[in-house]
Design a protein around this nucleic acid. Structure first.
Lengths: 229, 229
DNA sequence: GTTGTAAGACTTACGCCGTAAGATACGCTG
DNA sequence: CAGCGTATCTTACGGCGTAAGTCTTACAAC
């Protein structure tokens, strides 16, 4: 009846993801169902499956789309080479605040990342940029590693420190990673190598948790000491 | 046929919650469906609804059950009166690590709290204990307020700093809260009062976010300075 | 032109989910 | 024995993700 004219795609992976983003922003992530998404696209639900294999792929795609938005917000993921070694902290601060600005536009995203992870290329390059900034400031890979855990909640707007596995990258994956995120790959290579029993769970979650906790407690003690009596 | 003998309850709110806890721990939170839970209890799904109004009530109940477990782990929520004002940080540290020990046994719980919140009495008394510890250390209510936001992710194993509303308690609720969580209520009374436009969203999320972020960045700068060259 | 092929949509249906509505079995009190 | 409240079961509905198969169209080869 509606006289659909061609078989050239009006539906694409990109248009689906963009519609999904709009729908989630407008009505919340729980309103993002295959049927609702199809309706927004003027199409039947099953038609989406030609372009994306399942709903999880849509969620993963959304994470990547938002990281692309973050990249634009912070002016590109490979940060400009630092001219001043002491400027790493303000640089990092601005980068994290920029990411937060984007996440505030998509407040449902942290939950999606929490459920599905954030291991696409854009997310990786974001982390890589952070590692690069810290590296330019003179931090060791080991300290950077701890720092990533500590600021994780600020980078992503959430944190799940209770993960049961550290998601050890296989050596093969590590090579692929090097092309995409060289700083991150270098850090992993060194930190994993240092740990003799690196079969799995190469992060000691308890240690990382206490590292971040002590950072905060020390800071609070200084704030307390500076408090007007 | 199975000759169920009595109408005296074999099912209770408590037995349902305990079975739900077991099921979530064993098979993950996504396996916690009304039908699976009923089967575990040797009962039909709809029978559960006599004791709990819906599934969300079960999730809320689980949060409270786990906070009771935390209370037991840390030796009671009203912390013992501090003998030494400088001991607040180690006391708080131990309390947070204790909570983490419990959350590690129920790794699905942070996600539930993220989705459903943690506003039951046990959760409130937990926060109240933390406020009490900080208060005994000499912190102002204002500083305590900031600190709660900063350590939120450590207290709960997660953080959702992107909430859109600050959940302003109505004055009536505040009275009820005072009975349950006096330290927390005192803090809220003061902090909310200080803010002239306290109609809703009395926390400035951006300020709180930057407070916690700067705590971490300063700490990392000190770690970097202490790093062997 | 006719026909083959494959892209890109649609149709139908299945097994899950939470739960509304109501029926049923039992013990207790009059 | 009648009636009532309690606790459980039965049935069914609408919505979910998606497996399987079908239909329409554009285009290339003859």
């Amino acid at each position: 009846m509606p006289q659909r004219s061609v078989a050239r795609p009006q539906l694409t992976r990109e248009s689906v993801l963009q519609a999904a983003l709009q729908l989630a922003d407008r009505d919340g992530i729980e309103a993002l169902t295959m049927r609702a998404l199809a309706e927004q696209l003027g199409v039947e639900a099953m038609s989406i499956y030609y372009h994306l294999p399942n709903k999880d792929a849509i969620l993963d795609g959304l994470v990547e789309v938002v990281f692309a938005e973050i990249e634009h917000e912070v002016g590109g993921f490979p940060p400009p080479p630092a001219t001043d070694a002491s400027s790493w902290a303000p640089t990092l601060r601005e980068r994290i605040l920029g990411a937060r600005r984007v996440l505030l536009r998509h407040p449902w995203l942290p939950n999606v990342m929490n459920a599905r992870g954030a291991s696409g290329p854009n997310a990786m390059r974001h982390v890589d940029g952070v590692v690069g900034i810290m590296r330019a400031g003179g931090m060791s890979h080991d300290l950077i590693h701890h720092s990533l855990h500590a600021i994780g909640s600020r980078m992503y707007g959430y944190v799940q420190e209770l993960s049961d596995d550290g998601a050890t990258p296989a050596p093969v994956e590590l090579e692929q990673l090097a092309a995409l995120a060289p700083h991150l790959a270098a850090m992993l290579a060194e930190v994993v190598h240092d740990d003799p029993d690196s079969t799995l769970g190469w992060c000691d979650d308890q240690t990382e948790f206490e590292f971040g906790l002590d950072l905060l407690l020390e800071g609070l003690e200084r704030r307390l000491a500076a408090q007007p009596a």
